[in-house]
Design a protein around this nucleic acid. Structure first.
Lengths: 216, 216, 216, 216
DNA sequence: AATGAATGAGTCTTCATTCAT
DNA sequence: CATGAATGAAGACTCATTCAT
C-alpha cells in the first residue's frame, strides 16, 4: 500500500500513465534526489528524515507514503540507481563485436557513469565493499546480486575472446574480477589526485591489463 | 588531558615509561580491542559506548579519559591499525632484492593482513572508498595519507624495476594503482565466493599483472 | 455546517425529511456503525480515522462533515447508543404493573442489552466508571446524566413498591443503586467465568436482592 | 537490567538494603507518584513521558531505567497498588470471627482504600471493567487474577458462614459477586452525589445485603 | 582516579486534520 | 459536494556525554 516500487507505480511501462501516476513518480524522484544529495554528503546516519523532507520541500508524512521507513528510502536510492547502471552496462556487454572493442566500450561507460554519479558511487561502494549499514533492508543482497551478475556477464565476454583466440587461456571470471579491480582503483584514484589523473589515464589500466591477457 | 594520542602517552619513545604511563597504555589497548570486536561486527552506529565499556570491563567515564568522543575512539581504532599495517608493508617494500620478489612478498603480506583482519578491513574500506562516517574526525585525511604513502612507496619499487630493466617503461604510480586495485578486487571476491576462490587464486592476479608489465 | 447533531439533521422530527436529509442521516449511521465495530474491538486510541473511513467506505473528509473530530465521533457513538438503551429501559420502568414484575422485566432487558452490545458495553463502562478518555468532549457529563436519570426512574419504581407496601421502607434511591450494582457485577462476571455463570444465574442476584427488600 | 520489579530491587526483604538500593526504591516511588497524578487526571494516552519526567523532576532517560516503556510504567502503577490493597483485604478476610463481623471489617477497609486512593481507583476500574488499554503488557491478566482471588476468598467467608448456619444456603461465590457489586456501586455513587451519600450510607448496602442472605 | 547514574537533545514515525481539486 | 493527498505537530524512546561521588 505504501512504499511502492517504481515498477508498481508505473504499472505497465507501455501504458500511458495517468496524471496522478506521473505526479507520484515525479514526487518520488524529487524525494530521492534530495535524499541522494544529503546522504552522499553526510552518510545515512547523519541525515534525518526531517532534513530530507525539508530539502525535498515535502512534508515528512509524504516521505512515508513512498518509503515505509528511512532504510527503505536509502535502499531504493541505491538499488534503483544500481539497476539502471547495471542495465546500461549489460547492454554494452551484450553487443557483438571484437571483444577488445566491447571491453573498451564497457570501460568508457564505467567511466562515464562514475563521474556522472560521483556522490552516489561513494555510497554504493561503502555498501558493497564495507560493512553494510542496511542489513535489515536486505540492501547488501540486492546490490551483491547485481554486482555478481555484472562480473558474470563480463566473464562471458572474456570467454568469447578466448574462444575467438583473442585472449590467453585464463579463467574468464578471474579476468573479469581483475579488470573490475583495476577500473575501480583508477576511478577512485582520479578523485583523490585529480591533477595526476586526467580521465584518459584510465586507458593505462586497459593497456596493462590487455597486454597481460592478449594472445601474443 | 583527555584524549591523548599514543604518541603523547608515550611521551618520548626513548624514555622509559613509568608505571602509570604503562598502565594507561595497557588500558587504552584493552578498550580498543573491545571496540574493534564490536565495531567490526556491528558497524559504528550499532555499537554504543555502554557496550564498549562493558566489553572492555571499564566504566564509561574511563573511555572518555582516552577518547574525547565516540568518533575519536573509532578513528583511533582504524588509524592505529592502519598504521601498523602500513609499517609492516613499508618494511617489505623497503627491502632490497629483485623487484618481482619484492612485489610477491608485498602481495603475500597484503593477503595475510587481509585475512587476519577481515572484519576491520571491511570498515577500513567503507571509510576509504565510501562516504566516510567520520568526516568530522578527519578520519578520511589520516587514512588517505597512509594509503597514498603506500602507493608512492609501491611506485618506487616499480621505478627501480624499470630502471633495472625488469619492467616496461610505464608510469610507476599507475602501475602501483593498478596492482593495488587488482589485489583488492581479488581479496574481496574471495570473501563472497569462497568456493570459487581459494587464497592461492590471488597468484592469478599477479601473473596477469606481471605479464602486462614485464619487459618481454 | 459541520458536526451536526442528529436533532439538527432531522430539523423537525415532525416534518418530512427531504432526500438530502435522509441521505445524510443514512451516511452518518453507516459511519457510526463502522466506528462501533472498530472502537469496540480495539479501543479509542488504536483506531485511526483512516480505518474508520475505509471501513465505512467514505472519504476521510466526509467523516469530518458529520463529526468535527475523532473525539466527537466517539462521543456520538457512545451517547447515541446509550440514549437508545436508556429509552428502552425507561419504557420498561414506566409500565404499570407489580413492582416486582417491573424489576424483573428491567433486569431481563439489562441482560439482553448487555449481551447484545458486549464490546460497546466495555467502552461504556470504561468511560462511566474509569477515567474518561474524553473529558474534553464532555462525554462524561452526557453519559452521567443518562445514568443518573436511569437510577432516578428505577428509584421511583421502588418508591411505588414501598407505597404499595411491597417493599420495606428503605431509601428508594439507595435500593436503585444497590440493584444496579448487583446487576453490573453479575453481568461482568459472566464474561470472565462463562462456565460458572450461565446467564440465568443473574436470577440469583434478583432473589437475594428481593429477599433483602421485600416486606416479609 | 532495566525495568526491575520492586521485588528485584529489594532483593531480599529481610536484608538491609544498601544506600543505592534504598535510593533507587525512593526514585521509583517518586516516578510512580508523579505518573499516578497525571494518569489519573488525564488517562494513559493524554500523558507523555516528557510530562511524567518533568512532574517527577527526573530526566526522561531515568524513567526508562525503571520501566522499559510507558505501558510497563502504567502497569507497575496499577498492579503494585492493586497488590497492596489485595494483601490488606486478604488479611481481613483471613481473620477468624463471626462472618458478619468479618464482612463488616472487609467493607470498612474497602471503603477506606477507595477514598484513600480515589484517582487510582478510577484507572483501576477502567482497566478491570472497561476495555483494557494495555493488553500488550498483560495488565488485564494480572489485575484479573487479583480480582478473582479476592472474590474467591470472600466466597470462603460466606462458605464458613453457611456452615456455621449464619447464612442461607446460597452459592457462596455468587454471594461474593453480589456483595462486591453493591459495594462498588455505592462507592462510585458517593463520588458523584457527595451530598446524597455520606460515607456511612454504605451501611445501607450491607443491611439490604445481609437481610437477603441471613438465615432468618 | 575511576565510576556509572543521570541527563535530555535528537530521531523516527504516526495520524488527526485540512483544503485544493 | 466528496475526496484523499499532503501536512507537521507530537510523542516514545535511545544513547552520547557529563559530573558528583
Amino acid at each position: 500500500m505504501t512504499s511502492q516500487t517504481v515498477a508498481e507505480l508505473a504499472t505497465s511501462s507501455q501504458t500511458k500513465l495517468n496524471r496522478r501516476e506521473r505526479e507520484n513518480l515525479r514526487q518520488r524522484k524529487e524525494i530521492l534526489e534530495a535524499a541522494l544529495q544529503l546522504f552522499s554528503n553526510k552518510g545515512f546516519h547523519k541525515v534525518s528524515m526531517h532534513e530530507i523532507a525539508k530539502q525535498a520541500e515535502f512534508g515528512i508524512g509524504t516521505l512515508y507514503k513512498f518509503f515505509i521507513n528511512k532504510e527503505f528510502l536509502y535502499k531504493a536510492l541505491l538499488v534503483e540507481k544500481a539497476e539502471s547502471w547495471h542495465q546500461r552496462l549489460m547492454e554494452i556487454l551484450d553487443q557483438d563485436g571484437y571483444p577488445i572493442d566491447v571491453i573498451e566500450n564497457y570501460l568508457n561507460l564505467r567511466q562515464k557513469l562514475f563521474f556522472d554519479n560521483l556522490p552516489l558511487m561513494r555510497l554504493y561502494f561503502a555498501e558493497t565493499r564495507g560493512a553494510s549499514l542496511n542489513i535489515r533492508a536486505g540492501l547488501d543482497d540486492e546490490l551483491s546480486r547485481l554486482y555478481d551478475e555484472g562480473l558474470q556477464k563480463l566473464a562471458t565476454v572474456f570467454s568469447k575472446g578466448i574462444h575467438g583466440n583473442y585472449f590467453r587461456e585464463l579463467d574468464p571470471y578471474c579476468m573479469a574480477v581483475a579488470l573490475d579491480g583495476v577500473i575501480n582503483a583508477f576511478l577512485f584514484r582520479s578523485i583523490k589526485d585529480q591533477d595526476r589523473f586526467d580521465q584518459n589515464q584510465l586507458d593505462f589500466a586497459l593497456e596493462v591489463f590487455l597486454t597481460g591477457i592478449l594472445n601474443k
